[in-house]
């Protein structure tokens, strides 16, 4: 951003002694409990935000472990049952030469979730500690995480659709494994974690940094 250098001059609502509504954006004087326009509860900063972020993030990480260790799909083909984990599936697809599909699965099921964990963790840390990344960039990162989060469920959707379509009894059938549930939970938890993050905190730290300088 070309105006990164002008960042120190940004005046936050908190610095201006005002409270902004997170829903409709109206600025109120301090002391007002609820937004006079939309009725949302007003708070200058959500003090419990970081706790919730860490809690959800941690839960998402926990369930992400079985999502990778347990089989995602249980494929029964002519009486022969194959169980494949996410990473095993990617390897199989590569062996079969479907590099494109393998890449999509790999990105959607492994790269993105892991990136989200890292990004959310980084953002949460950046509020409490001093980091190199500017506030603007961190805000953009937050926006990206929030945007991508909803697409992380693509794996789960594929599993759900396959399971409901391919039920040919003996000939072929696909059933979701434990990993499917775990993965869905993991995605949901990280999304909630991202939503729990009060992005205004980014700027407080930034201000502090600027003030210290």
């Amino acid at each position: 951003m070309e105006d990164a250098g002008t960042a120190p001059r940004i005046l936050t609502a908190k610095q201006a002694g005002l409270v902004g509504c997170t829903e409709c954006g109206r600025v109120h004087a301090p002391g007002v409990a609820r937004c006079t326009r939309c009725g949302t509860r007003l708070a200058s900063r959500d003090t419990a935000s970081l706790q919730r972020v860490w809690a959800w993030l941690f839960a998402g990480l926990v369930v992400y472990v079985p999502a990778n260790l347990y089989p995602m799909l249980r494929t029964t083909l002519l009486g022969k049952t194959t169980e494949s984990t996410i990473f095993g599936g990617v390897v199989d697809l590569m062996h079969h030469g479907s590099y494109g599909v393998a890449a999509i699965v790999f990105v959607a099921s492994i790269v993105i979730p892991v990136s989200k964990f890292i990004a959310i963790g980084y953002l949460a840390l950046s509020v409490q500690r001093r980091v190199q990344m500017s506030a603007h960039k961190r805000h953009l990162l937050y926006e990206a995480v929030e945007f991508i989060g909803r697409w992380s469920m693509i794996d789960v959707f594929v599993v759900a659709i396959l399971s409901s379509l391919v039920q040919l009894d003996f000939a072929a059938s696909i059933n979701p494994g434990i990993a499917a549930v775990s993965f869905a939970l993991s995605v949901a938890f990280t999304m909630i974690s991202a939503l729990s993050f009060d992005s205004r905190l980014i700027w407080d730290v930034d201000v502090g940094v600027n003030e210290n300088e």
Partner: peptide, 8 residues
């Protein structure tokens, strides 16, 4: 909220 990760 911490109950969630503990339960998970």
């Amino acid at each position: 909220t911490w109950l969630i990760p503990i339960a998970a």
